[in-house]
C-alpha cells in the first residue's frame, strides 16, 4: 500500500461540523465530510478531510467563520496503519 497523507479538521461539536460542511461547500476547495478517524479520539464524530496543499485556506475559513475545532491534524496512512499528527 502506498503512503497517503491528508488533513483533517475535528470539531468541538456536531453542530460545528455541520456548519463547516455548509461553509466549505461554498468555497472552491476540495473537501470531504468524513467520520472522524479513530486516531483522533477526543472530538465529535464528524470531521472535514482536505488536501494538505489547501491547509492555509482551510485555516482561514475556520478562523473567519469562528468554527470551534479540536484541532487540525495530518493523517498518514501506510502499511503499519494510520497515524495522526496534530498540526494546529
Amino acid at each position: 500500500m502506498k503512503e497517503r497523507q491528508f488533513g483533517v479538521v475535528a470539531f468541538k461539536s456536531t453542530q460545528y461540523a455541520i456548519k463547516a460542511d455548509t461553509i466549505f461547500n461554498r468555497h472552491n476547495i476540495k473537501y470531504r465530510t468524513i467520520p472522524t478517524p479513530r486516531e483522533i479520539t477526543h472530538s465529535c464524530g464528524l470531521a472535514i478531510k482536505f488536501n494538505l496543499d489547501d491547509i492555509k485556506e482551510v485555516g482561514n475559513i475556520i478562523e473567519d467563520n469562528h468554527l470551534e475545532t479540536e484541532g487540525i491534524f495530518k493523517i498518514i496512512k501506510d502499511n503499519e496503519g494510520n497515524k495522526a499528527e496534530k498540526l494546529h
Partner: peptide
C-alpha cells in the same frame, strides 16, 4: 444531519 451522515457513511 441525515445528509451529512450518509456522505460520511459512503466515504467509510
Amino acid at each position: 444531519l441525515g445528509k451529512i451522515l450518509i456522505k460520511s457513511f459512503i466515504y467509510t
